[in-house]
Nucleic acid binder design. Structure first.
Lengths: 114, 114
DNA sequence: CGCAGTGTTCGATGACCATCTTACAGTGCT
DNA sequence: AGCACTGTAAGATGGTCATCGAACACTGCG
């Protein structure tokens, strides 16, 4: 019983938080970081599931990058899916926008790069 | 020369930043604080210029409160005006909303206290 | 003038957070 | 099995920031 649809995946699946369960303060704090803004913008400019974590071009090491993705997951901004050794990413556009209307658009459309 | 329109006001006028000159990151960071969110909500629930700094009911001392108002000024969220010994406040609704559409509404309408 | 009320500034303190290095765990390929 | 690649976890470090206490400045009033 309790069979997974997947085969033997001996890796802890990433923990997600749905945007509906995210407090406003958490969302704002998650977006109030230049690296995470960059990650989100990169993500937005590619198709869903197109990028694995190592594909993002931010000036921090792997560990910090992993930390940032954890923050983005907790804020309901990013969904992750394991495929082979890679962890593919998807921006939760609609779900997040339903919870915080306009916030994501703001982050993506702001003219300044900071 | 260099006469001010005002009479002899021997107090440094508060320094303001127009929302148009505020980077996204600054705006988000300013809003990513529970005390400042509370200040903004209190401000929104009263008429313009109705509240002086000491009228806000947040669980911090005067010094911290003064600091928070400084942050809000720098983020283009609040305008201040001296009247007698008091410093009256006004939420820059329209100007801020023109620069960051929806962000202020989000902060005011969020159902949770965070 | 002295005094109460209001707000800012300064220095110190403590907490939180972003980052790094290192070590570790899966995955798939040869 | 061994190796290269990918991502996470743990511990340490440095910087930023929220807060406080105390001192200071300005206002208006008695």
């Amino acid at each position: 019983m309790s069979d997974q649809t997947e085969g033997a995946s001996h890796r802890p699946a990433p923990v997600h938080t749905h945007p509906d369960d995210v407090p406003l303060l958490t969302a704002l704090s998650a977006l109030a970081d230049p690296v995470r803004i960059q990650l989100i913008r990169d993500l937005a400019s590619h198709p869903d599931w197109a990028l694995s974590c190592s594909n993002f071009d931010v000036p921090v090491g792997r560990a910090a990058k992993s930390h940032h993705f954890s923050v983005l997951r907790d804020a309901g901004l990013v969904e992750q899916r394991d495929q082979g050794p890679k962890r593919l990413n998807r921006l939760r556009r609609e779900e997040f926008d339903a919870r915080f209307p306009g916030l994501l658009d703001l982050t993506l459309r702001a003219d300044d790069t900071e």
